[in-house]
Amino acid sequence: MLKFLQMGGYAVYLWPSYALTAAVVALNIYWARRSLHGAQAEARRRLATLKAAS
């Protein structure tokens, strides 16, 4: 296990690369979902205004 984590002495370059990639992958999922849910909430509000006006 320790040998795996050491990655033949490249751990200090390799694991930060993987950590950054994982973080950006996760952040993009969060941003995309937040953007869609935000648009849906905004559309619901707009719809309520349109219904009230008609």
């Binding site: 995309a32 979902r33 905004e42």
Partner: peptide
């Protein structure tokens, strides 16, 4: 697809 759905919805004015 997720982002574009939000973007399409944001641009829409048809109730």
């Amino acid at each position: 697809l997720t982002r574009a759905r939000g973007e399409v919805l944001r641009r829409e004015r048809n109730a």
